[in-house]
Amino acid sequence: MTTPPILLANALTQINPGLVIWTIVTFVVLLVLLRRFAWGPILSMIEDREVGIRESLEAADRQRAEAQRMIEEHHAALELARKDAAEMVKRAQEEVELARVEALDKAKAEAAELIASARAQIEAEQKKAFSEVKVVAVDLAMAAASKLIEASMDEAQQRRLVQDYLDQLDPASGA
């Protein structure tokens, strides 16, 4: 006995309640299983990875900014150091120049002073020598005179005598 086709076509739209229940049961069991053992772990791993990537990117950004800042700081410090060094060199040069000029002036002054004092000393020595020579000359004249008186010789003799004496003394008188 064959079933009329129209009844079979009707079967296409017939709903088997058993299959509905099986589908619901299967779906719910599968959902629970996969949620617990597949989707949950996979999704959480994906999320962890995404968070990790986002954090690494942020950290990288932060570090780059930090590095940039440090480079700029270093540049500024270097510039400052260079300027300081230049200034120091300049100041040192100025100081050296100043010291040189000062030393030169001092040396010149000292030399002048030395010359002046030498000159004064020479003058003083000269004066002293002159006065000593004068004293000696007076002494000698007086000694000669006394000799003249003692001997009471004629003028010629006296003159010779004085002359002799003077000649005799001559090398010593230069002292």
């Binding site: 088997n16 309640p17 058993g18 299959l19 229940i21 099986w22 589908t23 299967t26 069991v29 599968l30 299983l33 996969l34 053992f37 597949a38 989707w39 772990p41 996979i42 791993m45």
Partner: peptide
Amino acid sequence: NVDMTPTKHTVFLWLSALLCVLLFIPAR
């Protein structure tokens, strides 16, 4: 009257669910 006896389509529903389990649970 509810007939819960598995049919051809029920078996293929289960096969599909089994495929899901076999493919995705080891994936993690």
